[in-house]
Computed example of a mutant assay.
Amino acid sequence: MNKSEIHAGYEFESGMFSRMRSWVDVASWVRLARIPRIMASPSHVGLVFAACLVTRVLVSSAVAGRVAPAPFWELQSHVELIAAMWNATGPLLGTTLVVAMWVLWTPVIQFVCRGGAVLAAGQSMPRAGEVMRLVRSRLWKSFLVPIIPLLCVLASAAAVFVIRVPSFLADVPWISQMTGWTIGIAVIPLGILGFGALFAVPLALAAMVCEPDSDPIDSISRGYEAFVRRPLSLVWYLLLSGAMVFVAGVLLGGVGWAASLASLGLVLLIAPDPLQLNAALEIIATLVIAWQLTLAFGLLGGVYLLLRSDAGGQEPEDLWTPPPAPKEPLPELPKEALQ
Rank of each mutant, 00 (worst) to 15 (best):
28 S>L: 05
94 G>S: 08
255 V>N: 04
5 E>L: 07
243 A>M: 05
312 G>H: 12
108 V>D: 05
14 S>F: 00
205 L>M: 15
104 L>Y: 12
162 V>A: 05
291 W>T: 00
104 L>I: 04
105 W>T: 05
61 S>C: 14
265 G>W: 09
62 A>V: 14
244 M>Q: 03
113 C>A: 10
190 L>V: 13
47 L>H: 07
105 W>P: 06
124 S>W: 08
118 V>S: 04
116 G>L: 07
55 T>M: 12
179 T>R: 08
188 I>Q: 11
257 W>H: 13
28 S>T: 02
153 V>L: 15
330 L>E: 15
131 V>D: 13
325 A>V: 08
284 I>C: 09
199 F>K: 11
308 R>C: 02
5 E>M: 00
84 A>D: 14
330 L>G: 12
9 G>Q: 02
197 A>S: 15
187 V>K: 10
264 L>Y: 12
154 L>V: 15
73 W>R: 04
161 F>Q: 11
163 I>T: 03
105 W>V: 01
336 E>A: 15
220 I>R: 04
330 L>P: 11
133 R>W: 02
290 A>M: 06
205 L>Y: 14
182 T>W: 08
44 H>L: 01
58 L>G: 06
29 W>S: 10
331 P>K: 13
91 P>H: 05
228 V>N: 06
78 H>L: 01
228 V>C: 04
255 V>L: 15
186 A>V: 11
188 I>D: 10
65 G>V: 08
302 G>P: 01
44 H>P: 00
113 C>G: 11
100 A>G: 11
184 G>R: 13
172 V>F: 13
295 L>Y: 02
58 L>M: 15
322 P>N: 08
44 H>Y: 05
319 L>H: 08
220 I>L: 04
99 V>I: 15
33 A>V: 02
332 E>M: 11
72 F>Y: 14
8 A>L: 10
307 L>F: 03
270 I>Y: 13
72 F>C: 05
268 L>H: 03
265 G>K: 06
85 M>D: 01
78 H>V: 02
68 A>D: 14
44 H>T: 01
12 F>E: 08
41 S>C: 07
66 R>N: 12
311 A>T: 12
306 L>R: 04
99 V>L: 14
277 L>M: 11
135 V>E: 06
272 P>I: 05
32 L>V: 00
159 A>Y: 04
57 V>R: 11
70 A>Y: 07
142 S>L: 06
227 F>V: 09
7 H>C: 04
189 P>N: 12
235 V>C: 03
233 S>F: 04
77 S>P: 03
22 S>T: 05
13 E>G: 01
75 L>T: 12
196 G>A: 10
208 M>N: 13
32 L>A: 00
125 M>C: 05
165 V>P: 00
114 R>I: 04
271 A>I: 03
218 D>G: 14
146 P>N: 06
7 H>S: 10
292 Q>L: 14
262 A>D: 13
63 V>F: 07
215 D>F: 03
207 A>M: 09
26 V>W: 02
63 V>C: 12
257 W>E: 15
59 V>E: 03
211 E>K: 09
245 V>S: 01
1 M>K: 06
279 A>T: 13
111 F>P: 05
154 L>R: 02
127 R>H: 13
272 P>K: 10
200 A>C: 10
27 A>S: 02
298 G>Y: 01
267 V>D: 10
163 I>D: 02
239 L>E: 00
48 V>L: 02
316 P>C: 07
84 A>N: 08
90 G>Q: 05
300 L>R: 04
26 V>Y: 00
239 L>N: 00
97 L>C: 07
162 V>Y: 04
56 R>K: 06
